[in-house]
């Protein structure tokens, strides 16, 4: 599609049937093409973020208003840079799993640890089960020179924060789970 505009759209609402249908119908009515989409229901609350390309001439406001009307909820739309090609994992993509007793500030601590070392978080999922908090972070370690040093820092951080941390390259999960 020539001269298309890439927009990032986020939708949040109390969960009910039909939100995805309403949003995506609204997008296709405006000639928008979906590139990537994540949807989750967190504690009964619907959240969705998606990337779509729209023909030149469709404005951010137009998309916002049209989708708000369609869904009856507030929708945020922002222009995004880049193209519609699927984002591939960088070569140094690792998965950090962190497990510990649930308390305030765990994600903040882990993400601050990563940020201070120039490590970008590509993906993050977490859940609580029986007072145990589990986080899975996909990290880009391109800025880390020596994995051994990062691992050593990680193990000190794990001891100090009471988290059990395991860092493994992303490929091991692909190898064990994909055919």
């Amino acid at each position: 599609m020539v001269n298309q505009q890439i927009m990032a759209i986020s939708v949040m609402d109390r969960d009910r049937a039909g939100i995805v249908a309403e949003v995506t119908e609204g997008i296709s009515t405006l000639g928008g093409n979906l590139a990537d989409l994540r949807e989750s229901v967190l504690c009964g609350y619907f959240t969705m973020i998606l990337i779509a390309g729209f023909p030149a001439g469709v404005s951010v406001e137009q998309v916002e208003q049209s989708l708000a009307k369609q869904t009856g909820t507030k929708v945020s739309v922002a222009l995004a840079e880049g193209s519609l090609t699927a984002s591939e994992s960088p070569e140094h993509t690792y998965v950090l799993s962190a497990v510990g007793r649930d308390r305030v500030g765990l994600v903040a601590q882990v993400s601050r640890f990563c940020c201070d070392r120039g490590v970008n978080i590509l993906d993050l999922a977490s859940y609580v089960e029986a007072d145990q908090y589990t986080m899975m972070l996909q990290l880009d370690l391109s800025n880390i020179e020596l994995l051994e040093d990062f691992n050593a820092e990680l193990s000190r951080f794990g001891e100090a924060s009471g988290l059990k941390l395991v860092l493994q390259h992303n490929d091991i999960f692909r190898a064990t789970n994909e055919i």
């Binding site: 859940y127 589990t134 395991v166 493994q168 091991i172 999960f173 064990t176 789970n177």
Partner: peptide
Amino acid sequence: MIRSDQILKTVEMIQK
């Protein structure tokens, strides 16, 4: 995309 339960399964396989 690898699901978090798949990640945990692999981690568990190695750790435990």
